Simulated scan of single mutants.
Amino acid sequence: MIIQKTYTATDVHVAGQAYRIVKDGPFVHYQSIQELNEQFSLAYQEEIKLLLNEPRGFAGLMGCLIVPPFKSDADAAVIFFDHYGTVPMQYGGIVAVITALLECGQLKARPSNVYRIETINGVVSVTAAIKDGEVKSVKLKSGPCQVVQVNAPVSYFDLNTEVSLVQADHIYAIFDKAELPFEIEMENLPVINQWGQKTIEALEGKYAFSRVILLDHSQKSEGKIKTVTFRPDRYIVRSPGFGTLAACSSYLLRNGDISAGSPIENESLFKGKLRAEYSAQIETSYEFSFSARGFITGMQTYVLDPTDPLFAGFLLK
């Protein structure tokens, strides 16, 4: 084996969503996190493929590049990326980064439990509860979420239903599961997947959306919902999703299905759970506080062998 390059990474999952946290990479000149973000896709093109693509990664893996902060009031700065380049601020990624920095000793625990992470969307403040060296929970706030449209008609072959659109970290198209004859359970994955394919085809070209949610709110009186979320490329999101939870909570609040004082727990198809509480309402927008925990799943060294015929990796979806 010929080793041309090596990279170390820490893997963390948050409610089922996996993040690969990288602290080393090519030396490039930048003077702000915005400038690094602009250069990232080109400067780190090889690293994106090496670290996120199969056989070392998989289609649902997210990347986090940690660098020293640019702002004096921040503890670290982070760029989030997927297989195609940089992506906007990831709430789960913040939880993963704080967990890795504290549990691996790169960030010293402080009595206030408050830490600040710089992103391209600004500095995010989080509260991390630590016990016996473990991060037991991380709390952070969402940005504003707004219901854009409700009960818009959707027709496609034998599909006749309605969709509601919510602007959170993405534009979410929410569908009510009450109309469907199956439950959001793993054994129903094939039929759920078929529903998702058909629904995305029905929406394309008619409504602007970035994610599709199938929402089961039959237990909303108990503060519980279940969801499955699809990306536009038909890939099912692994976790309950911070954005999914905020979008569904906004939708339910807007419809009067839940009260502002009631916490909501979202369970995914894969039994991952996230919790949110109403934080504030600013005009027609809602804000929420999230509580989650990250778990370190591995620390690895990855190598680039230039003789490897699959050095650029591949993706199966």
Results as ranks from 00 to 15, higher is better:
Tyr84Cys: 10
Tyr84Thr: 15
Tyr84Pro: 00
Tyr84Met: 13
Tyr84Asp: 13
Gly85Arg: 09
Gly85Thr: 05
Thr86Phe: 10
Thr86Lys: 08
Thr86His: 06
Val87Pro: 04
Val87Lys: 05
Val87Asp: 08
Val87Phe: 09
Val87Tyr: 10
Pro88Val: 05
Pro88Arg: 06
Pro88Ser: 03
Pro88Trp: 06
Pro88Phe: 04
Met89Tyr: 12
Met89Gly: 01
Met89Leu: 12
Gln90Val: 11
Gln90Ser: 15
Gln90Tyr: 11
Gln90Ala: 12
Gln90Met: 12
Tyr91Asn: 12
Tyr91Trp: 01
Gly93Glu: 01
Gly93Pro: 02
Ile94Leu: 12
Val95Pro: 07
Val95Gly: 09
Val95Asn: 07
Ala96Ile: 07
Ala96Tyr: 05
Ala96Lys: 05
Ala96Phe: 07
Val97Pro: 02
Val97His: 04
Ile98Ala: 10
Thr99Asn: 01
Thr99Arg: 04
Thr99Ala: 01
Thr99Leu: 02
Thr99His: 03
Thr99Cys: 03
Ala100Asn: 13
Ala100Arg: 11
Ala100Trp: 07
Ala100Ile: 05
Ala100Lys: 11
Ala100Met: 14
Ala100Val: 11
Leu101Ser: 01
Leu101Pro: 02
Leu101Met: 10
Leu101Ala: 03
Leu102Phe: 10
Leu102Glu: 06
Glu103His: 03
Cys104Trp: 00
Cys104Lys: 15
Cys104Asn: 15
Cys104Gly: 13
Cys104Asp: 13
Cys104Gln: 15
Gly105Val: 04
Gly105Lys: 09
Gly105Asn: 02
Gln106Trp: 15
Gln106Asn: 15
Leu107Trp: 01
Leu107Glu: 08
Lys108Val: 06
Lys108Asp: 00
Lys108Tyr: 00
Lys108Arg: 10
Lys108Pro: 00
Ala109Trp: 12
Arg110Asn: 14
Arg110Thr: 12
Arg110Met: 12
Arg110Val: 12
Pro111Cys: 12
Pro111Ser: 14
Pro111Gly: 12
Pro111His: 12
Ser112Tyr: 08
Ser112Ala: 11
Asn113Ile: 03
Asn113Leu: 11
Val114Ala: 09
Val114Phe: 04
Tyr115Arg: 00
Tyr115Val: 00
Tyr115Ala: 02
Arg116Tyr: 07
Arg116Lys: 13
Arg116Gln: 06
Arg116Val: 06
Ile117Ser: 00
Ile117Tyr: 00
Glu118Phe: 06
Glu118Asn: 05
Glu118Gly: 04
Thr119Gly: 07
Thr119Tyr: 05
Ile120Asp: 07
Ile120Lys: 08
Ile120Pro: 04
Ile120Tyr: 02
Asn121Ala: 14
Gly122His: 02
Val123Met: 05
Val124Ser: 03
Val124Tyr: 03
Ser125Gly: 07
Ser125Ala: 11
Ser125His: 03
Ser125Tyr: 00
Ser125Lys: 13
Ser125Asp: 12
Val126Ser: 10
Val126Ile: 13
Val126Gln: 07
Val126Met: 11
Val126Phe: 08
Val126Lys: 07
Thr127Pro: 07
Thr127Val: 15
Ala128Arg: 05
Ala128Met: 06
Ala129Arg: 04
Ala129Pro: 01
Ala129Tyr: 07
Ile130Ala: 05
Ile130Arg: 08
Ile130Cys: 10
Ile130Phe: 08
Ile130Pro: 06
Lys131Arg: 15
Lys131Asn: 14
